[in-house]
């Protein structure tokens, strides 16, 4: 279905494989258009060179986070990275770090989702029977913070980005902590700051530099450094900066 215009040249992909040999495998891939993505190159490999290549994607427009991988050492979405924006001569593609590899570039996301469950990262409603829509002033301090932190696509990039950083054993992870922050500030939630108690040590142990690094790769541009700062403040008993 793709129109291939060979005049745009080709790129070399170096893809981490999980099969019997493991290691890296190189493929020369034509660049079909100036806006073609790494995802398009992976798809080309699968349709033309190796139909067994494992990679995951769904929405193709940066909304689902399914295609998060590590490209030349940096976590990103394969569907949002154009081939042309990569400076290096070889595009190295690896699975996310810190999660078990299932097949080539596909990692097992279950530990990531389990952490969201462990964090009780869902609203505990204050008034579930209400048949009114709450009045939510968009400019309150709490709401402004919640809005700023919202939009996580649970891609796992933040977990991967700090997998090699010093952390507590079995961390719940920044995505879950960020959601905890939002719920702590949420007036419709009845649990208040109690979710945070179990993870106070993790918040203390996380270095601001780690959160900054995670933020730098977050495809949804969630301000994770600011989230950590506010969580540290909560844990220290200052109730956040709001």
């Amino acid at each position: 279905m793709t129109k291939v215009t060979p005049s745009l040249g080709s790129v070399t992909l170096e893809i981490a494989r999980s099969g019997s040999g493991g290691g890296q495998e190189r493929f020369d891939v034509p660049v079909p258009s100036t806006h073609a993505r790494v995802l398009d190159a992976l798809s080309w490999v699968r349709e033309n060179e190796d139909p067994s290549l494992g990679f995951r994607f769904a929405c193709r427009v940066g909304m689902c986070g399914a295609c998060a991988v590590v490209i030349n050492g940096k976590e990103t979405l394969a569907c949002q990275t154009t081939l042309g924006e990569i400076d290096e001569s070889t595009i190295r593609i690896e699975p996310l770090r810190g999660l078990p590899v299932q097949h080539d570039l596909i990692v097992d996301m279950r530990p990531f989702f389990s952490n969201l469950a462990r964090a009780e990262a869902g609203l505990k409603p204050r008034d579930p029977q209400s048949r009114d829509l709450p009045i939510i002033a968009p400019d309150s301090n709490e709401r402004t913070t919640i809005e700023a932190q919202n939009g996580c696509i649970t891609c796992g990039a933040c977990v991967s980005a700090i997998a090699d950083q010093p952390q507590v054993d079995d961390p719940v992870g920044l995505a879950a902590l960020n959601r905890i922050l939002m719920l702590t500030l949420e007036e419709r939630d009845s649990a208040g700051a109690t979710r945070l108690d179990e993870f106070a040590d993790e918040v203390r142990a996380l270095r601001p530099q780690s959160a900054e690094h995670a933020e730098s790769v977050c495809p949804a541009n969630i301000p994770l450094a600011s989230a950590l700062e506010q969580l540290k403040s909560f844990v220290a008993g200052h109730g956040g900066d709001s």
Binding site: M1, T2, K3, V4, T5, P32, S33, H35, A36, R37, L39, D40, S43, F57, R60, V61, C79
Partner: peptide, 9 residues
Amino acid sequence: VDGSLLNGT
């Protein structure tokens, strides 16, 4: 988006 899986979104 010619030549891309994004085509048609």
